[in-house]
Structures are given as C-alpha cells and as structure tokens.
Amino acid sequence: MSGQQAVEAAIATRRGEINDALDEGLPLQEPEELYEASRYLLEAGGKRLRPTILLLVAESLADIEPEDADYSSFPTADDDPIDVMEAATSVEIIQSFTLIHDDIMDDDDVRRGVPAVHREYGLSTAILAGDTLYSKAFEKMLETGARSERSVQALSELATTCTRICEGQSLDISFERRGAVTPDEYLEMVELKTAVLYAASAAIPAMLLGYEEAVDPLYGYGLDIGRAFQIQDDLLDLTTPTEKLGKQRGSDLVENKQTLITVHARRSGVDVDNLVAADSVEDVTEAEIDEAVERLEEAGSIQFAREQAEDLVQSGKDNLQTLPDNDARDLLEGIADFLIERTY
C-alpha cells in the first residue's frame, strides 16, 4: 500500500467511526424537521478531515496503535480516561454549522452534491438548523469527561474559533466589494475563515489529554495546513469538473471571490473582473471557465498558489516534531500532503 493509500485508508476508517458517533450523538427527535435539517449535510457525506486529525493527534500523544484505540475511554497524560470522540464530533458539527450559514450567505444551490439546506428546508429552518448545530457542538465538548480546567480550556478554544470564523467570513464578504487585496490580507482571511478550525482540531486533544507543551506546535500545524487546504480548494474550484466538485466549477470567479490565484493575477496585470462574462453561476459555460483558467496559468497565478500551499504544508509538518515518532504522526504528515494533492 502506498503512502497516499495508507492515508486515505486511515481517513476512511476513522470517518466510519465518526459517522457512527454523529448518528448516535445527534439523533432524530422533535421537532423532526429541525433535526432532519440539522443532520442533512452530515448525512450527505464529507471527508471528516478535522475530526480525523483530532483523533490522530490523540493517538499520537498517547502513543496508541489504531487497533488499540478506544476513543470513548482514552488515556490522558495522568491516566484519567476521557471520551475524545465527543470532541471529534464537536468540531465536525461546527464545520457543518458553518457550511449551512455559508450557503445561505452565498445563496448557493448545492453542497456535497445535494441541494443546500436552505434550498431543501427553507431559509428559516436552515438558519435554525445551523444555530442548533452550533449549540450542540458545545454540548458535545462538555461530554468528554475531562477535568474541569481542561474542559474549560477546550471550550474556550472552540468559542474563540467560532468568533474567528465569523470574522473571516466577514472579511471574505468585504473583499468582494474591493478591487484589490494583498496576498497577506488573503492569507489572514483564510486563516480566520478556514484554518482556525483545523488548528483547534489539532490543539484541543492536547488540551484535553493534559499535554500542554504540545498545544502551540499542534495549533501551528493546523493553522498552516488549514491555509493550504483553502488554497487547494480555490485551485479545485477552477480545475475540477463540476460533477466531481459537487458545485459549478469556476463559481468563485463568477461571484468575484478573492482567492490567492486572482490576487496574484491582478497584481500581474490580468483583468480579473472580466475573466468571465457571465453574471451568475447558472449562466457560466465550461468554455468560459476553460479560457479563464488558461489565462491564469499563463500569468503564473495557478503555479504561484500551488507553491504557496506546498510551503505551508511543509511548515505545518515541521510542527509535528512535538509528537512522539509513531504511526499516527506519520499519518498526520500524510494528511498534510493529502490536503494539497486531493482532486476533490
């Protein structure tokens, strides 16, 4: 089995356990429509990368082989077992909450190959579903059984992360009204909007398990690979076929989203605002996107973004030296590479 196959197998194995925990931890109950809407995106799929990272960090810190890992009774630094799966489901629930609200703000029709929650259930129910998930995430983080001071630290991190995600989303919206954004401004935005949840996912197990010295390096790992993940997402928006992407290819260009690709292109003299003539995602053609991508490649903008993502991944992997040298750490390094090698 190749390194890439090993990483994908590790993600798939933990995704199955995370899905089971989500199904059990977020049961269908009254009012039924609210909980159907809340579970909708979770049931539609997803890679479960953030909770997988959380579980792998816990495995590495405790130096436990995957086949020996009982996530519901996980040993801490001082042998005070906790349920790390509750923390893993917490961060995935937060991720789903952000997607529901993102789709509302962007007026997107499709997410993970199915109609967006607000299209399927209506705007009001979708907003309530997102709010419900937000609250449930904090409930789950309280159910790990960790010592009170460690629970408070993890809850504080989760709360701060949610605030930062909102700040990043606000910046992203404001960038749509601006003619130019610098690379540093873009990276600050994606750090807040996307990377902080990866950072929290990597750091929270160290908080809960009592490995305080590992918290900052692990946060740095998550922050760097999270920014690389978003850059790769921006690349995939241009290069992955619509049917595989789960949404219209090139939608970021049509919606005038600022990405590292367009930031570089604009600074290189490309008229980014007129790369695509279509006024809406529904009207854009594959030929228009193909032509736009060709111009961005000629400007070196796509290669620039790829190189930035590669540098961030290497920086993130360097932070993993804080962990014991074991299979879980190797998988965390592999996941960092996977984030910029994936094609969907």
Score class of each variant (00 low, 15 high):
94 I>S: 08
77 A>K: 12
106 D>M: 14
109 D>C: 00
100 I>A: 04
81 P>T: 06
109 D>S: 09
76 T>V: 00
100 I>Y: 02
90 S>E: 12
90 S>C: 15
75 P>A: 06
84 V>Y: 05
91 V>W: 10
84 V>D: 03
80 D>N: 15
72 S>I: 01
90 S>R: 10
101 H>C: 13
90 S>P: 12
114 V>K: 00
96 S>I: 11
83 D>I: 06
109 D>R: 07
93 I>L: 11
102 D>V: 14
89 T>Y: 03
78 D>A: 10
108 D>Q: 09
77 A>S: 12
91 V>H: 10
111 R>D: 03
106 D>K: 08
87 A>C: 03
95 Q>C: 11
82 I>A: 01
82 I>C: 02
112 R>Y: 08
114 V>E: 01
88 A>N: 11
92 E>V: 10
101 H>N: 14
80 D>K: 14
112 R>D: 01
91 V>I: 15
96 S>V: 12
83 D>T: 07
74 F>E: 01
91 V>N: 11
98 T>Q: 11
103 D>P: 05
84 V>R: 04
107 D>Q: 14
112 R>I: 02
72 S>A: 10
73 S>M: 06
92 E>F: 12
72 S>D: 09
79 D>T: 07
72 S>E: 12
84 V>K: 05
96 S>G: 10
89 T>E: 03
87 A>E: 01
87 A>K: 05
93 I>N: 05
114 V>G: 01
105 M>R: 15
74 F>M: 07
104 I>L: 12
95 Q>T: 07
83 D>R: 08
82 I>Q: 01
95 Q>I: 05
105 M>I: 15
73 S>L: 07
111 R>W: 03
75 P>Q: 03
101 H>W: 13
104 I>H: 11
112 R>V: 01
87 A>Q: 01
103 D>A: 03
87 A>I: 08
85 M>N: 07
113 G>C: 13
77 A>G: 00
86 E>P: 00
73 S>R: 13
86 E>F: 09
87 A>N: 04
111 R>M: 07
88 A>C: 09
81 P>G: 04
96 S>D: 13
113 G>R: 04
88 A>D: 11
103 D>E: 09
112 R>Q: 06
77 A>L: 06
108 D>S: 15
98 T>I: 11
110 V>N: 02
85 M>V: 05
73 S>G: 04
107 D>Y: 07
104 I>V: 14
104 I>W: 10
96 S>W: 02
77 A>V: 02
105 M>W: 13
96 S>Y: 07
90 S>W: 08
114 V>M: 03
99 L>F: 06
79 D>F: 09
75 P>G: 07
97 F>M: 11
96 S>E: 08
91 V>Y: 07
113 G>E: 10
110 V>C: 00
72 S>R: 13
103 D>T: 02
76 T>M: 02
102 D>E: 15
